[in-house]
């Protein structure tokens, strides 16, 4: 077994320098994925860069216009214990409380879940539904991109060498908007999603017409899907069983899953439809409460 260097940079500058020291690196954020991957020999690196000591990654704040900027390494527990986030962005809480148990939630973070880039990552469809973007940083500066554009394949993403995720940026949500995230697992805990779905519905002032919708589905393709067509199909519609069912059908058509020990192709396509419909229903409830 290989010996691995451990680095704990305390600033972005130190982190960028560590990334450019000529060694192969992996980030140690929550560690709940990478430690398992290294132990099982699924990944091999020269060094682990602990990103839990960089101030920009360890804090979160509301923006003046009502958006939320979350440092990539802020543990889920810190997020879901914040009453204001619970009140204003329940969809963020839906996913933050789903990942792991209390011990894992006290370490694990959005940046880690996104950076690990698993197709079934539970935070991703929730954040895509909310329209989140990422701020990536390197020695050359920073860049922003929509979360749905980050992933390129299972465990793969657009992060360049020398680059890391600094923040996850949840934009201000429209008035009369509601979002919901859920997943299907065979047990009531301790499973990876067979399918997971995040959905947002924006209603007009009357509450009877849909002005916008965003639907994202995970675990049914090599990357988490943003199914724009499913959301677009709802624009101008009234929120009814029929319109939701049509959107759910479009989401299911976008799914290209595999059969493995967690589920079959047929089951996952079916569940995409079921979970999308149910997510829209719950998002609508929240939109009406808003």
């Amino acid at each position: 077994m290989k010996e691995i260097d451990y680095l704990a940079p305390s600033s972005l500058g130190e982190a960028y320098a560590a990334l450019q020291n000529g060694k192969t690196s992996a980030f140690l954020a929550g560690g709940t994925d990478i430690i398992v991957q290294l132990r099982e020999g699924r990944k091999e690196v020269d060094q682990l860069i602990d990103v839990k000591h960089i101030p920009e990654l360890m804090s979160y704040a509301w923006t003046d216009d009502g958006g939320l900027v979350i440092g990539a390494s802020v543990p889920f527990a810190e997020i879901y214990e914040d009453d204001e986030i619970v009140r204003r962005l329940p969809c963020v809480i839906d996913c933050a409380t789903l990942v792991g148990g209390i011990q894992i939630q006290s370490r694990a973070c959005f940046g880690g879940n996104i950076g690990n880039s698993g197709p079934a990552a539970d935070t991703v469809p929730a954040l895509i539904a909310l329209g989140a973007t990422l701020t990536l940083g390197s020695a050359d500066g920073t860049r922003d991109l929509p979360l749905e554009d980050f992933f390129t394949g299972p465990g793969q993403n657009v992060l360049g060498p020398g680059e890391l995720i600094i923040t996850i940026n949840v934009p201000p949500q429209p008035a009369n908007s509601g979002s919901f995230f859920h997943r299907f697992i065979p047990r009531n805990e301790m499973d990876i999603a067979v399918v997971n779905v995040g959905a947002r519905i924006d209603l007009d002032a009357s509450g009877e017409r849909i002005e916008g919708a965003r639907i994202s589905v995970g675990a049914v393709a090599p990357v988490p899907l943003f199914v724009a067509a499913a959301g677009d199909a709802l624009v101008g519609e009234t929120p009814t069983e029929d319109s939701f069912a049509r959107a759910a059908d479009i989401a299911a058509e976008a799914a290209t899953p595999i059969t493995d020990m967690r589920g079959s192709i047929a089951q996952r396509v079916h569940l995409t439809r079921v979970l999308t419909y149910r997510a829209l229903d719950r998002a609508l409830e929240r939109a009406r409460e808003a």
Binding site: P186, R187, N188, E189, D191, D260, M261
Partner: peptide
Amino acid sequence: MENASFLDYRMPTSLD
């Protein structure tokens, strides 16, 4: 055997 771990060999938890 593709599910040789307690993650994917699904024994019931107390919540089930």
